[in-house]
Each structure stands twice: as C-alpha cells, then as structure tokens.
Write a protein that binds this DNA or RNA. Structure first.
Lengths: 205, 205
DNA sequence: CATGCATGTTGACATTGTCTACTTCACTGG
DNA sequence: CCAGTGAAGTAGACAATGTCAACATGCATG
C-alpha cells in the first residue's frame, strides 16, 4: 500500500538531494539545475520531476534539512556551569557551524530563499532553529539575574543572536571577501566580538 | 574624441541600470534578465550588451551604486558631540537604510555577488562603505590612542557592523517574521541592542 | 570625402525549467 | 492467475535566457 522501494524510487529522491547539494558545493547555487542533477545521476532530464514539482521544491527540501542539521548542531554544545562560558560556548558553536559548513550556511542565510509560504516544511524547520537559539540564549541571560525578567532576557538574547548571526553572515558574505581581511585579523575580529559581547552583557542599571 | 551623447548612448546605459533596479524591486534578483531590461526600454535584446559585457557587469554596477548610496546615507547622519549619541545616530541610520531600502540592502548583503576581482569598482565602493563605519568608530575616541589604534578600530567596527547587520538581517528575514514579535517588542529589541552596544564599547583593558 | 568606431538590430545556438504524451513494470483486487 | 492501475522513468516540445556573430547606421575625424 505505502511506497515500497522498488529498487530505486526513494533512492532517486535521496540521490537527487545529495547530488544537488554536491552541485551547489561544486559550482555554487547558480550552478544548480535539475537537468545537471539528472545528468550526473544518469537518468533522463525529467526523472527528478517525478520527485520534486519544481526546482524550488528541491531547494526547499535541502534548506529544510540544513536548518535541521543546524539546530541539532547548536543543541549538541556541551553545557557549562559558568554563564559567560556557556554563552561563549554557544557562540563558538554557532560560528563553528558556519566555518564547517560554509556552503550550507550561506544557503540558509545569504541566499534568496524560495517563497516560505509555498514551502511550509522548510519554514517550520527554520523557525525551529531560530527559536531554539533564542530560547537558549534567553535561558543563559536569565541565569545571572532573577526569573522576573524573562522578557528583558529575551531582548538580550536578540542582541546576542544578532551579533552572532551578523558576524557569521558577514564572514560568509561575498561583500566581506572584498575587504580582503587577513586570516589573523579575522581571528582577532572574532575574538574581539566575543570580548565585546561579554562586556556588553553586564547588568543594565 | 570622448564619448558624446548621441541622443541616447549614455542615456541608454543609465536607463538600463535604473530599469534593472526597478525589475529587481518588482520581481526579485532572479527576475532580472538583460532581455527584460531591453524589452522594457523598447530596444533590441542586444542593445544592453553594447554597454555591459555581461549580466554580472550590470549587477556589479548596480551594487557599486548601492554601496555609494549606502555610504552617503550613513554619512548624512547629523553629527553629535556626544560619542555614544553619535554611535547610536549612525546605528539608527544603518537600521533606517535597511528599513527604507530592503531590496537594495538585501542585494548588497544577502545575495551572491559577482566575483569582486572582476569588478574592482564595485569592490572599491564596498570597501569605502566599510571604511566609513570604521573611521566613525575611530573618531569616537572610545579607546586610548596607541599604535594599535587603527587596527583595533577595525576590529570594533567589525563588531558593531556584525550586530547592526545581524539585527537588520534578522528583522528582514522571512523566518523571523514567523516568530510574531509585536511592534513594541521589536522597538524594545532595537533599543536594547543599542544600549548593549554602547555598554560593549567601553575601553578594553 | 572616406574611414572607423560606437551604437544598435537581427538571427542563431546552447542551456534551462517545465508541459504533455508515451513506456514499463511491480503490485493488487477479482 | 491475470487484467489493469498507478507510480517511476523516458522522449520530445516549447518558451525564455545569456551570449556570439553578422550586419546596419551615422557621427566624427583623418
């Protein structure tokens, strides 16, 4: 009754996704075409259309998985007892993902996305990743003070999130590459950001 | 000897650029095609090629102008004598640009760019915009002047830029809108970011 | 005046997304 | 057991795009 792999139905679907991602890694997002996917897999140019209604749909599926992977990656960070260490750990985890998976990170944050309303699953996963991050940061900001300031902690979480996202995003952007910053400066910049973040999070009057 | 406008040589070039930008505003970056530009201007599909060697070249030109406009916008912020007010003024100006010109902002920072080395003019303008941000920070004299002054300002500029860009980017993203934050909370979040930024920029030991 | 170069037009080609119409073939209800 | 049904895959067609080549035109300068 349900779909039973006939030696290659779901296989091709999965193969399309991983091959598409490979193409993006090789040639960038603009190099992705369903026909190239089909060609690499040795199937007809229409075969992928049996599994994805359009190019945007395969992109949305890839993005959905990226957001999932991203959220899981952030979640696996080992917790620490010291709030600032914890915060820094989270920040480093965030930056680590961007460093380890630059293409995927760019795909998620530095690339035009398919219309979110048309791809609810992708959007849900994205939202989940963002919510996770913000909630974690909120908890951390909350710990040093008392529980009555949850909304205030939420604002601080937005601040930290902004800085992390902005930094990772900038480092991955084409625009940043035009600045021709050296690797040393880059490492210094990241360290400086963490230092400034710590400084920023002293209690407000 | 030099090019003399023959009733429409430079005109067409300018017209292409503004029409291309209009197309991007209308239909997004993926809707931009040189043929559509030509069509809208009522010229043959090859006419634009007399002024731009390729699609990337017209995009690079548009980006170069966006960076110029962006830099000018940041610069027109009313100067203040109080350093922190000054920082906040520029930050608000930054956020204002992102709010008033979301398409251009995304074009500059959230979109794959043509190879910078192939488009030095675009690259120069992008660098100039960043340098402006950095120099403002330098001028604020928020830290003791020493030999590392300039490079230190560079790092802090990266930090401020990260926070501003991250915030602007998050507020614009489709996924963020699903978090359903109220306008009040949103304004609070922005204010909090500025407050934290000020706090962050006290002199380092 | 002839020539050349900038500007513009027309036509052609390969590539892409996507539609429609065919083929195959494993499974299923009678 | 067997016709048939529907999913997976193939083949061909179409319009749109970027870009190349060949041609037209007209102003400027030798």
């Amino acid at each position: 009754m349900a779909a039973k792999p006939r030696a290659g139905p779901i296989n091709l679907r999965e193969a399309c996704i991983s091959e598409a991602l490979q193409i993006i890694e090789d040639a960038g997002i603009e190099g992705l075409s369903l026909r190239e996917v089909a060609r690499r897999l040795g199937v007809s140019h229409q075969a992928p259309y049996k599994h994805f209604p359009s190019r945007d749909h395969i992109l949305a599926e890839i993005l959905a998985r990226c957001f999932d992977e991203f959220a899981a990656f952030l979640d696996q960070r080992p917790p620490s007892t010291e709030p600032f260490d914890d915060l820094r750990g989270m920040g480093e985890q965030y930056m680590a993902y961007a460093r380890l998976h630059p293409v995927k990170y760019r795909l998620m944050f530095n690339t035009p996305m398919p219309d979110p309303d048309a791809h609810p699953n992708m959007m849900r996963n994205a939202q989940r990743a963002f919510a996770l991050l913000r909630d974690r940061l909120t908890d951390m900001a909350l710990r040093p003070v008392d529980e009555t300031h949850r909304s205030s902690a939420n604002l601080d979480a937005m601040f930290v999130w902004s800085t992390l996202h902005g930094l990772a995003s900038i480092l991955q952007s084409d625009t940043f590459r035009t600045l021709k910053m050296s690797d040393v400066e880059l490492q210094q910049a990241i360290s400086r950001c963490f230092a400034r973040l710590s400084l920023a999070l002293t209690p407000l009057p």
